[in-house]
Nucleic acid binder design. Sequence first.
DNA 1: TAGGCCATCTGGTCCT
DNA 2: AGGACCAGATGGCCTA
Length: 215
Amino acid sequence: MAPHPLGAPSIQVTRETEQPFPGASDNEILSAASAPPSPTLTSRDCAEPEAGGCRGAAKKLRARRGGRSRPKSELTLSKQRRSRRKKANDRERNRMHNLNSALDALRGVLPTFPDDAKLTKIETLRFAHNYIWALTQTLRIADHSFYGPELPATSCGELGSPDGGSPCDWGSLYSPVSQSGSLSPATSLEERPGLRAPTSPPYLHSGSLVFSDFL
DNA sequence: TAGGCCATCTGGTCCT
DNA sequence: AGGACCAGATGGCCTA
């Protein structure tokens, strides 16, 4: 697998990591892990003609149970299942940690105050989406002023926005997809007193963006 | 106390 | 066969 562009995630072992079922005893954990001997026929197995119908499903089932190999004792199978599950859980946990690391990296490049409450996952994604849109619009405006004719005051509307709103209204920068309603971070930020969206546009300064409103 | 957010576990599915 | 990805379920924590 290619190295993660955002760097290797630091996996921290939390209390929950060490104890998969917080509050559950070891016995409960073991019985839960070995509870359903899951290889059962599902309706899907019989529903798929490509799989050979129910007969194909039976074949699959046999394969899942070990095919023609030497039959293993229930204890061995149970141990094997538990071990596989445990490994799968570890991988899944790791995968989610990677995902969270990427989200943290994304939070890191979004313009928020350090003492702001941490953006939730969904807020981060929505904010990033709108932020990118805002930067794109800013670049277009910059291009117009550098290379094109002076923008008349009324030309802001040419740029348009995903929601049909005027880009001159910088408040709308943070809700470019407000058509879909819930996709606006402005909405969610308003709902969270600790967080706020900028009230003025980002300014171009020496070729870089300065979000003066965030300072 | 209800509701939101989150981490984790789990079983199913797809892919290599 | 085993790993990655996904979605549902569950339980803990926090806040209004």
